[in-house]
């Protein structure tokens, strides 16, 4: 029915129809999902505020700003490969997004065990992401002497923003790992058997959002 309604009217009409209807505005969207979307919208404003602050401070810097691709390079086969670790982390996060998307798909087929393992895999990938981040932090702190308040290579804000933004993102990832595990176990135990598996989709929304934020951090922090 939703499809039918969409095919014979333009998007604008649909929007107007939906906003002027009773009961629900977002048709066929369960409460939890609507709430998650709105939360993510709010969270977008948080991350954008961080990134915009980073932009403002970096652009006004007169001290040298370290060149990230070199700071974050890693020895491989005897030569420093720029951004190697970050590349790996990016790939891990993308992969975890993929497994998550599969979990959602399996959820709607009510394949409980598959959902569990896919979510579990997603959580593990997420956890390894956090682990690598910890490694990266350690390397930066002990190896390069960059602290949140100082930076031997130039502007101290380099470290400040790096630790703050990646730290805040890392917290999101960690919270997501916990969230995934809880939902995964509940799915396996059959808590949602009698309802739809929309909770998997909701968890997925959050997880993809975390990945999405990383796309922006990757571009603006590591490639600028």
């Amino acid at each position: 029915m939703a499809e039918a309604a969409q095919t014979n009217q333009g998007p604008l009409t649909t929007i107007v129809d939906d906003w002027s209807s009773d009961v629900t505005t977002f048709k066929a969207v369960p409460w939890g999902k609507a709430m998650m979307w709105i939360f993510l919208l709010s969270d977008t404003f948080i991350f954008t505020s961080f990134l915009v602050s980073y932009m403002a401070v970096r652009m006004t810097q007169t001290d040298a700003w370290p060149y990230p691709s070199e700071v974050f390079s890693l020895e491989a086969f005897g030569t420093p490969v720029p951004l190697l670790l970050i590349a790996i982390m990016t790939f891990i996060l993308i992969t975890s997004s993929g497994t998550m998307a599969m979990a959602v798909n399996m959820g709607y087929r009510k394949r409980k065990v598959a959902v569990f393992w896919l979510m579990f895999a997603t959580a593990m990938l997420g956890a390894s992401f956090v682990g690598m981040q910890a490694f990266e932090w350690t390397k930066l702190i002990t190896g390069e002497g960059v602290k949140a308040w100082q930076n031997p290579m130039g502007a101290p804000q380099f470290g400040s923003f790096f630790f703050m933004i990646t730290g805040f993102h890392g917290l999101h990832v960690s919270a997501g790992v916990a969230y995934l595990l809880i939902v995964a176990i509940r799915v396996l135990r059959g808590k949602y058997d009698n309802t739809s598996f929309e909770i998997v989709e909701i968890t997925g929304l959050y997880w993809h959002f975390v990945d999405l934020v990383w796309v922006f951090i990757f571009a603006f922090f590591y490639l600028w």
Partner: peptide
């Protein structure tokens, strides 16, 4: 509120860091 409070939240975090850790945001 949902769209405006984030800016305050972010500035509160940055100010706490300036204060306690000695960053210079």
């Amino acid at each position: 509120g949902l769209l405006a409070f984030p800016a305050l939240f972010v500035s509160a975090i940055m100010m706490i860091l300036d204060l306690k850790i000695g960053t210079s945001f």
